[in-house]
């Protein structure tokens, strides 16, 4: 009942609205070889401490928050504070304990090693 009343009232009281930081999907390259899956993610201006990588239940969540410090008055602004956010499905064969990530020049490189059982195996043909 209370909730319905809230929905019905106009948002007159909130004269000052805080704009949420926009969420943008970053550009991603995905590579694979026999040992691992490798992701390259463009995240210009994001600090190492503001990046979160979570693997949960076959999903990989990437998030990076960028804060731009401005000095003086803006003459033009084509980019600003935002959150890079993207989710991928990852195969269960990824060894999530060994995932490692590096950030260099605004590009996040994420190594997702495959577990031993999932690696392709060369089968030898025995001759008698």
């Amino acid at each position: 009942m209370n909730k319905r009343a809230e929905v019905a009232t106009r948002e007159e009281s909130s004269l000052e609205r805080n704009h949420d930081t926009p969420r943008i999907a970053p550009l991603v390259d995905i590579y694979e070889n026999n040992d691992e899956i490798l992701l390259h993610v463009d995240m210009p201006g994001v600090d190492k401490k503001d990046i979160a990588v979570n693997i949960d239940n076959g999903k990989l969540f990437l998030s990076g928050i960028r804060r731009i410090e401005s000095i003086g008055s803006a003459q033009w602004e084509e980019f600003g504070d935002l959150e890079y956010m993207r989710t991928f499905s990852v195969p269960q064969t990824i060894d999530s304990a060994k995932v490692n990530a590096e950030l260099k020049d605004g590009v996040l490189r994420l190594h997702l090693p495959k577990s031993e059982a999932a690696k392709p195996r060369q089968i030898e043909i025995k001759s008698d």
Binding site: G45, I68, I71, G72, A74, Q75, W76, E77
Partner: peptide, 14 residues
Amino acid sequence: RTNLYDAGDHLTMK
């Protein structure tokens, strides 16, 4: 994308 800021005695471009 670029940003330009004017801080009086200098400009800053990102």
